[in-house]
Amino acid sequence: MKENTINDSQADMQTDKSEWLEENNCPMTNALKIIGGKWKLLLLNSISKECPARFGELRKKMQDITHATLTLQLRELERDGIIERKAYAEAPPKVEYKLTTLGQTLIPIIRALCDWGEAYKSHQQKAGACTV
């Protein structure tokens, strides 16, 4: 006769699934899905400072980013409602990016991160100066 019990591997699978659900419903995880990565916060910072920002200007400011990666990151931010793209019918093509109302709510967060980065840099310089 077969018992109706959960074996160890089934229990592990259920635990993994509940952890995955909890992790993916976490506000921090949701935020990082939208603005996480190497370039998005840098792009948002640039766009917030020079709004609207043109593609070429963004490319010049972030020389290490490839054309394809810049395009992808901008498209993802646009898809997620953080920036809006405006294309002008002229030659050569002109495209501008600006923060949406939702994107503007990130400005205090970006500023706080910049302030923290400055404080950390200062802390590291002081710590390095004390080293003998």
Rank of each mutant, 00 (worst) to 15 (best):
M1P: 09
K2Q: 11
K2V: 02
K2C: 05
N4M: 11
T5Y: 03
I6M: 10
I6N: 13
N7Y: 14
D8I: 07
S9D: 08
S9I: 10
Q10K: 15
A11S: 06
D12Y: 10
Q14Y: 08
S18Q: 04
S18V: 10
S18K: 10
W20F: 11
L21E: 10
L21Q: 08
L21S: 00
E22G: 03
E22C: 02
N24G: 07
N25L: 12
C26D: 15
M28G: 01
T29R: 05
N30G: 06
A31M: 13
L32N: 12
L32K: 15
K33G: 12
K33H: 14
I34C: 03
I35F: 02
K38M: 04
K38L: 09
W39E: 00
W39S: 00
L41M: 07
L42Q: 04
L42D: 00
L43I: 12
L43W: 00
N45V: 00
N45C: 02
N45Q: 01
N45L: 04
K49M: 07
E50S: 06
E50R: 05
C51M: 15
R54L: 05
R54P: 01
F55E: 03
G56P: 02
G56K: 11
E57W: 04
L58D: 03
L58H: 07
L58A: 07
L58N: 01
L58R: 02
K60T: 11
K61T: 03
K61C: 00
M62W: 09
M62Y: 07
Q63I: 13
D64W: 11
I65E: 00
A68K: 13
T71D: 05
T71Q: 11
Q73M: 04
Q73F: 02
L74W: 01
L74C: 01
E76C: 02
E76F: 01
L77D: 00
E78I: 06
E78Q: 10
R79W: 11
R79D: 07
D80A: 10
G81H: 12
I82L: 06
I83C: 03
E84W: 06
E84H: 09
R85H: 04
R85C: 08
K86H: 11
K86M: 13
A87W: 12
A89N: 13
A89H: 11
E90C: 12
P92G: 08
P92S: 05
K94C: 14
K94F: 14
K98I: 09
K98W: 10
K98V: 04
K98P: 00
L99R: 01
T100A: 05
L102S: 11
G103L: 02
G103S: 06
G103H: 02
Q104L: 10
L106Y: 00
I107P: 06
I107L: 08
I109T: 15
I109H: 14
R111E: 04
R111N: 10
L113S: 08
L113A: 08
C114A: 15
C114R: 12
C114I: 14
C114D: 12
D115I: 12
D115N: 14
Y120A: 05
K121C: 03
S122D: 03
H123S: 14
K126T: 11
K126S: 13
A127T: 15
A127P: 09
T131W: 14
T131L: 15
V132I: 13
